[in-house]
């Protein structure tokens, strides 16, 4: 069964955007063989809009998490504990990693195949 990964990226190739700065997430659909395709560019209200922090304790983080609830993994360059906590409530794993999407997705797929039954991160 296929699953979805959300990526915070500025150019569609490298994961380079902070979670709170992302105004949209690229949604990838990955099938059982690890092949993936971009299906959507989902827009959100950035959690840390314009350098002004108003989201950490508020509902904006939850709003983003709600809008990403169908994905299993969110990849971004950097993130904070509030983001992780908000996403965890929806069973979404938030991973900080700076690398090309084409390298990251196979690693996630490999991990998911090995530990799908055993590990919930």
């Amino acid at each position: 069964m296929s699953y979805y990964i959300a990526v915070a990226t500025s150019d569609g190739e490298i994961i380079d955007t902070h979670f709170g700065h992302a105004s949209s997430f690229l949604i990838l659909e990955v099938d059982d063989l690890g092949n993936y395709e971009e299906i959507e560019d989902r827009e959100v209200r950035p959690a840390c809009g314009g350098g002004e922090c108003h989201a950490c304790a508020g509902s904006l983080m939850n709003e983003i998490a709600e809008s990403l609830k169908d994905v299993d993994f969110v990849l971004c360059a950097r993130s904070g504990p509030h983001a992780e906590e908000a996403l965890r409530r929806y069973g979404i794993a938030l991973l900080d990693v700076m690398m090309p999407i084409s390298r990251a997705v196979p690693k996630i797929h490999k991990f998911r195949q090995r530990y799908r039954r055993n590990v919930v991160i």
Partner: peptide, 9 residues
């Protein structure tokens, strides 16, 4: 060691 290390080594 955190989530990212688990997935990406």
């Amino acid at each position: 060691f955190c989530n990212t290390d688990v997935v990406f080594g």
